[in-house]
C-alpha cells in the first residue's frame, strides 16, 4: 500500500474539514439568518460543487490561481511559490469542492434552533456573536459534526479536482484515489484493491457514525 498517498490524503481531508468548520460556520449563519432578498444567489453558488463536474470546477480553480491571474501572481510573490500543483493549492480547491457538504448540514442545524430561544438570549443582553457560541452552537452539535465528517469523507474520495489542480506529485498532491487509478493503469490490481478496500471501509465507517448519531442510537451522545 502507498502509505505516503494515504498520509497526504488524510492530511488533506483533516485540514479541509478544519478549514470548513471555520469558514462554513459564518457562511451557514449568514445563509440561515440573513433576510437579504437575493440570498438565493449565494445559496446556489455554495451548492454548485454538488452538481458541477469536478473537472469543470478544477479547471476554473486552476485558471483562478494560475500565474496569469492576479490572485495567483500575488500568492506566488508573497509565498515565493505558485499555487497550482502544490499542497496548498490542492487544499484551497478541496475547501471549495467540499463547501456544500459542510455548509448545508450547518445551515440545516441552525434553522432548527427555535427563533424564540435566540430572541430570549438577545433580550437577556447577549450579543449575536455570544448568542451564537453560547446557544446556537450547543443546540447544533449534531449538524456541526455531520457537516465536518461529511466534508472529511468527501475529500477522502475526491479525484477530478485533485488531478486538475494538484496533479500527481508523490508525497505532495498524490492522494489515495489517484494512487488507485495509477495502480490500475499499471495493471497492479492487488495493490489497487487493497487501497480501494481501505477507502471503502473508512468511508463506510465514517458515514455509519454520522447516520447513527443523527438517529441517536448512540447512548454515549448527550440527549438534547
Amino acid at each position: 500500500m502507498n502509505w505516503t498517498a494515504i498520509w497526504v490524503t488524510f492530511k488533506l481531508a483533516s485540514l479541509t474539514s478544519a478549514a470548513l468548520l471555520a469558514i462554513g460556520l459564518p457562511i451557514a449563519y449568514w445563509l440561515t439568518f440573513s433576510r437579504w432578498r437575493w440570498k438565493f444567489l449565494v445559496e446556489s453558488i455554495v451548492a454548485l460543487p454538488l452538481v458541477l463536474p469536478p473537472t469543470v470546477l478544477g479547471f476554473y480553480i486552476l485558471v483562478a490561481i494560475g500565474p496569469h491571474s492576479p490572485v495567483g501572481r500575488f500568492y506566488a510573490e508573497v509565498v515565493g511559490q505558485p499555487l497550482p500543483f502544490s499542497f496548498q493549492g490542492l487544499l484551497f480547491a478541496s475547501i471549495l469542492y467540499s463547501l456544500p457538504f459542510a455548509v448545508q448540514p450547518f445551515a440545516t442545524a441552525f434553522e432548527q434552533v427555535d427563533r424564540k430561544l435566540i430572541e430570549a438570549s438577545w433580550t437577556l443582553g447577549l450579543s449575536k456573536l455570544k448568542t451564537f457560541f453560547k446557544l446556537i452552537v450547543p443546540l447544533s452539535t449534531a449538524g456541526l459534526v455531520t457537516g465536518t465528517v461529511l466534508s472529511f469523507a468527501h475529500t477522502l474520495g475526491e479525484f477530478g479536482v485533485v488531478l486538475m489542480v494538484g496533479g500527481n506529485i508523490e508525497g505532495v498532491t498524490r492522494t489515495v484515489s489517484i494512487d488507485i487509478y495509477d495502480e490500475v493503469q499499471a495493471l497492479n490490481y492487488a495493490a489497487a484493491g487493497q487501497t480501494a478496500l481501505l477507502l471503502l471501509v473508512v468511508s463506510y465507517g465514517v458515514l455509519l457514525a454520522v447516520y447513527a448519531m443523527n438517529r441517536k442510537v448512540w447512548a454515549a451522545w448527550p440527549q438534547k
Binding site: K116, E119, T123, L126, K130, P138, K224
Partner: peptide, 26 residues
C-alpha cells in the same frame, strides 16, 4: 435592559435551571 418572557417560556434546553437563570448574568 428589559426582561422578556415568551408565551411558551423559551427555556434553553441545553442549560440547567441555574444555568438558565445565570444566562444573562455573564
Amino acid at each position: 435592559h428589559i426582561g422578556y418572557m415568551a408565551q411558551d417560556y423559551a427555556l434553553f434546553p441545553t442549560y440547567t435551571v441555574a444555568g438558565n437563570i445565570a444566562y444573562g448574568l455573564g
